Deep mutational scan, measured.
Amino acid sequence: TEKEKEVKRLAKERGLSPDQVRELAQRAGFSPDQAKQIADEFA
């Protein structure tokens, strides 16, 4: 999704850790499970 792409782009730009990616995703409105899946891509 657009929102997911945006979260991943920000995460890459900022060099976020997987935990930070998960927090960012949840703040963007993703469920905890979705946020974990997104964060796992950065693990």
Rank of each mutant, 00 (worst) to 15 (best):
Q20K: 07
V21I: 12
K8R: 12
V21L: 11
T1R: 14
A35H: 01
E13T: 06
P18F: 12
V7C: 09
K8L: 10
D19E: 14
E13F: 03
K5E: 14
V7K: 03
A11M: 01
A25I: 03
R27G: 09
A25R: 00
K3G: 09
D19C: 11
G15Q: 09
D19H: 10
E6L: 15
R22T: 09
R9M: 05
Q20I: 04
K3C: 12
E23R: 09
R14V: 09
E41Q: 10
E4C: 11
E41A: 10
R27W: 08
K5W: 10
A35P: 01
G29M: 00
R27D: 12
D33K: 11
K3Q: 10
A25K: 00
L16G: 02
L16D: 02
V21Q: 00
E41D: 14
L10G: 06
E23Q: 10
P18C: 05
E6F: 12
E23P: 00
K5N: 14
A43W: 13
V7Y: 03
P32S: 07
D40T: 07
E13Q: 11
V7E: 03
S17T: 15
L24V: 07
F30I: 05
D33V: 10
L10A: 13
A43Y: 14
Q34P: 01
K8P: 04
K12I: 06
R14I: 13
A11P: 04
E41N: 08
A11Q: 02
A39D: 01
A25L: 11
K36L: 11
L24F: 05
L16I: 03
V7W: 02
R9I: 05
D33W: 02
K12S: 11
L16Y: 13
P18S: 09
V21E: 02
D40K: 09
D33Q: 14
K12Q: 11
R9Q: 10
R14T: 11
G29D: 01
I38D: 01
Q37Y: 04
S17H: 09
Q26A: 11
S17A: 09
K5I: 11
S31K: 06
A28L: 15
A28R: 07
D19F: 04
S31W: 04
E4K: 15
T1E: 14
R9H: 07
R9V: 03
G15P: 00
D40P: 01
R14L: 15
E2D: 13
E2F: 10
K12D: 07
Q34H: 11
K36H: 09
G29W: 00
L16M: 11
A28K: 07
A11Y: 01
E41F: 05
E41C: 07
R14K: 14
K36P: 00
A11D: 03
R9S: 06
Q26G: 07
E6C: 15
Q20E: 14
L10Y: 04
R27M: 14
L10P: 04
K36F: 08
E13L: 11
Q34G: 05
E2T: 11
S31Y: 04
R14P: 04
P32V: 07
A28I: 14
S17G: 08
D40C: 11
V7M: 06
Q34S: 07
P18Y: 15
T1H: 14
Q34L: 08
G15K: 09
P18T: 09
Q26R: 11
L24W: 02
R27V: 11
E41V: 04
D33S: 14
L24N: 03
A39V: 04
L10D: 09
F42K: 02
Q34M: 12
L24D: 02
R14W: 10
D40W: 09
K12C: 13
K8S: 03
R27L: 15
E6D: 08
A28P: 00
K5A: 14
V7T: 05
S31Q: 06
A43F: 15
R22Y: 15
Q26H: 06
A25W: 00
A43N: 08
K36W: 13
A25C: 08
I38K: 00
R9A: 06
R27T: 13
V21W: 02
G15M: 08
S17R: 09
K5Q: 13
E23Y: 02
T1N: 13
E41I: 06
K3Y: 08
T1C: 12
G29A: 01
Q20G: 08
E4A: 15
E4P: 03
E6W: 15
K3D: 08
S31L: 07
P32T: 06
G29I: 00
V7F: 08
P18K: 11
D40V: 07
G15W: 04
S17Y: 06
E13I: 12
Q37F: 05
R9W: 02
L16R: 01
K5H: 09
